[in-house]
């Protein structure tokens, strides 16, 4: 008994022995910590959108049946999107305010650009329907600017979907779309 106790406590080891000992502990600890960190990643990443969600269908919309002054709300990637057929008056109003004092400056033309960079058609505005404040869906043709008004917290958008008044910080986000034919588009 006595000799084991002596061995345990005395440890008259040379500093070389201690260095080796420290090295082992540090190496094992470091490798273990790296392993734990790497292991954590899958458990975090699993909450990201899955492959089926990411590959969610693109949405095709037929514009022929959409009358001027109307909009339809369609879903793309599970989110609502406004497709609005603007009247000439609405287009004019939108273009007139291109250089007004805007919270989030943008010209009407820049808000019509297709996903591939080509210019869009003034008659059809395609924007995401989520208010940039906290995500409610704004009401069609309401508010002072006759674009949209969000009933949740009073944000008002013009007929180009630009934020004009209220707590929302940004214009309604564009939805990436391209014309397939003159009267049909694909979103996504």
């Amino acid at each position: 008994m006595a000799e084991t106790t002596a061995n345990e406590t005395a440890a008259p080891a040379a500093s070389a022995g201690e260095t080796r000992r420290d090295f082992i502990f540090i190496a094992a600890g470091a490798v273990g910590a790296v392993g734990a960190a790497l292991t954590a990643w899958p458990f975090i990443d699993q909450m990201n959108p899955a492959a089926d969600t990411r590959a969610m269908a693109t949405t095709e919309v037929d514009l022929a049946s959409l009358q001027a002054g109307q909009q339809i709300v369609i879903t793309w990637q599970g989110k609502p999107v406004f497709v609005r057929h603007r009247t000439p008056a609405e287009i004019e109003a939108a273009q007139r305010d291109d250089y007004a004092a805007l919270k989030d400056p943008a010209t009407d033309a820049s808000r019509l650009v297709q996903a591939n960079g080509a210019a869009g058609k003034p008659a059809f505005l395609i924007v995401q329907a989520a208010c940039t404040h906290l995500g409610c869906i704004p009401t069609f043709a309401a508010g002072d600017y006759k674009g949209w008004m969000c009933a949740c917290h009073g944000s008002q958008y013009d007929t180009s979907g630009r934020i004009r008044r209220g707590p929302a910080p940004l214009n309604l986000a564009l939805a990436p779309y391209t014309y397939l034919t003159d009267t049909s588009i694909r979103i996504g």
């Binding site: 458990f43 990443d45 899955a50 492959a51 089926d52």
Partner: peptide, 27 residues
Amino acid sequence: MHYAPSIHDAFASVQRIRRDVPWGWLI
């Protein structure tokens, strides 16, 4: 988080975990 406890979806949801959910094939 990914499993659907319904007799119509349970089997498919496990397959989805193994095929589509990030790292589901491991977890």
